[in-house]
Design a binder for these strands. Structure first.
Lengths: 371, 371
DNA sequence: TCCGATTTGTTCGTATGTATG
DNA sequence: GCATACATACGAACAAATCGG
């Protein structure tokens, strides 16, 4: 027990225990300790190394070696360092979510984290169950795609509980306004705006807009839709705005368009869709009525999903980074997680929400109108 | 992560996990490792040091370094019934896998289990990493979609270690023959058979078959393709069979068909595709050549994916249960998990692999030929 | 019981890389 | 840009424990 590194180790221990080194305070540098004990750097490093693995100190390259706050250790130590990140999405298999999940999974697994998946099917009850499990078991962080973000969220308490338990979370695609969380979202208002602007500039004035309004995205896109009309001095026929909920997505817009195209008069020349999924659905309706896209009707999607390219008529749509967004979300949550566990408050405070700019991708489903 | 000591550390970890180093067995001496990795003793000691502090190895001066018996540690750890199921797939975001994952997630979360996701991108190295994590952390069961199932699998040892650790696993879509595991698969041979039979009965005799042959599914579908020809007395032109690997999937088949259609003579009248993804890709090629489906060329897909319905020409294809398969897999693994933990061996022994019958879905991409 | 070969433990010196402030 | 501090890596030496002959 009278090895040199053990002497150094014990000396440092004493200073921690007698309070000379307070939590988060920098201890002597390695070269300082070399002088004090007249030993080599290697010996000092062995001594400090053992104290680090035993959880008394932590090192920060370029800054120094610091004393750990034991009180914090016990709260986070309560579970084995499993390195788990949870992802809650509305749908796992549909649409753009698989890509988002893949992007996140790829980044997280590269950094040694597990990815646990929960899907809510856009249902608050399921969201509650998922949050319940996350609170019960051990997770280091959560990436959440909010369920029905435009409606009042009955699970607010669960989110507040996450905060109380020091489990960081971020939101993607949308966020609950009340919580003011860190988030990565699209600029949906601008998206709706440029969808519509594009059509107006092509000469369209009779444009139907379909918006899913239980998610906040739909509301914002509608806002952009209206703004584009206003700015270009085009009057919006109120009956040209169709709002629907997740539950109605397979029926209401389709039926509305069938009706509208059957009447034969006041037929719209263009359609703004909440997303590509709807656009594809409406494409079928248009085909049934023996109309051509884009000759008879122009149509704009949103999200640039795989669907936009799978059809014969390649969709004009708004770009969505998908797997890149998943990756960004993963990076953001890991940065925060490390800041929390590493008792380095700085990164947490400097983290900022990201709003991704919306850009139009022009393909073959929109066309200049010649009246 | 690419530090020398980390390389050595990971290498030793692998040998522990794949069973090369048995509990209490002596591992290579420091000087041995120095030679093997061509590093200094210091580096070797750092690597071993970390593994010792992490509880994988223990050192005895004068004797050597030994492997810790994890089973002793884990039986006590076992108490924390975390209820985790891991799913390893080749791709998370592509094609039919999201649906499979959703089916499994839905069933498992309803039964109080977590779902952790791993994707291999059809790469053995990534598969190894995933298995590594599953062996290291605590999982109750694993659902695996094999990576390149037709090729020799270098990770067999990891699977055997799963068995040794009493972590049950099942395979979906395909399986490694050597392991003879419980599995849920399609009847791929019949699938290829009825794809082809359908075309032959429509009068086609000049049929190209595209098969991805690094997965076992492709080999079986090709077998069915050949059998259908044989049974109907139709000669197969060897140049009409195109095999490709995952890496070539975006290029080789497309280029082959472009070439074939350019020649102008001996143009095929029908195409059998390994899956819908390829069918859609080839549909574009056919369009470029100003040919019509199904008037000029009939085409049959496989899997009945979302793509089969997204295009203007709805694909004739083979039905795949997708989310139902995920659900079945989830049910099967839970049954086994419960049997193992409940020390009720019966259910485990009675569990049987499922082969799902293949059925043809006839849509608009195939047509009677009139010569 | 002792010897010698092997193996891990401790310590020093040196050099270069990288992050921080 | 610069000094400081930690991170990785090589080389060398001697000490202490183990084990087979």
């Amino acid at each position: 027990m009278e090895t040199k590194y053990n002497i150094v180790k014990q000396a440092i221990m004493s200073k921690i225990l007698d309070g000379t080194f307070q939590p988060h305070q920098k201890i002597y540098s390695e070269s300082e300790l070399m002088k004090q004990f007249d030993v080599s750097r290697h010996t000092v490093r062995v001594a400090i190394g053992e104290l680090v693995t035993q959880g008394w100190l932590y090192r920060e390259q370029g800054a120094g070696t610091f004393c750990v706050d034991r009180s914090e250790v016990e709260t986070s130590m309560n579970a084995s360092n499993q390195k788990n990140i949870a992802i809650i999405t509305t749908y796992i298999s549909d649409y753009i979510f698989p890509s988002i999940i893949r992007g996140a999974e790829s980044y997280l697994s590269q950094h040694g984290y597990h990815v646990s998946l929960f899907s809510t099917n856009n249902n608050h009850e399921n969201e509650r169950k998922a949050l319940n499990k996350i609170l019960t078991q051990r997770f280091d962080g959560v990436i959440i795609e909010p369920t029905k973000s435009a409606l009042f969220n009955p699970n607010i308490n669960y989110y507040l509980n996450l905060e109380r338990k020091n489990i960081p979370y971020i939101m993607i695609n949308a966020f609950y306004d009340e919580l003011d969380p860190l988030s990565i979202t699209m600029n949906d208002e601008k998206g709706g705006y440029i969808q519509t602007k594009h059509l107006i500039e092509l000469g369209h004035t009779n444009i139907i807009g379909f918006f899913k309004t239980d998610d906040i995205q739909g509301n914002k896109r509608m806002k952009g839709f209206l703004q584009a009309h206003r700015e270009h001095g085009v009057f919006v026929d109120p009956s040209n705005i169709v709002i629907y909920s997740s539950e109605e997505k397979a029926t209401k817009p389709v039926e509305f368009l069938q009706e509208k195209l059957s009447v034969g008069e006041d037929v719209p020349t263009a359609i703004v869709c909440y997303n590509d999924e709807l656009a594809i659905r409406l494409l079928d309706v248009i085909r049934e009525k023996n109309l051509q896209v884009p000759e008879d009707i122009s149509i704009v999607g949103f999200d640039d999903s795989f669907m936009a390219n799978a059809t014969e008529v390649k969709l004009t749509t708004i770009q969505h980074p998908k797997s890149k967004m998943g990756e960004s979300a993963a990076k953001m949550i890991l940065d925060i997680v490390k800041a929390v566990t590493g008792s380095n408050k700085k990164a947490r405070d400097t983290a900022e929400s990201i709003v991704i700019d919306s850009e139009l991708i022009i393909r073959d489903s929109t066309k200049q109108i010649n009246k």
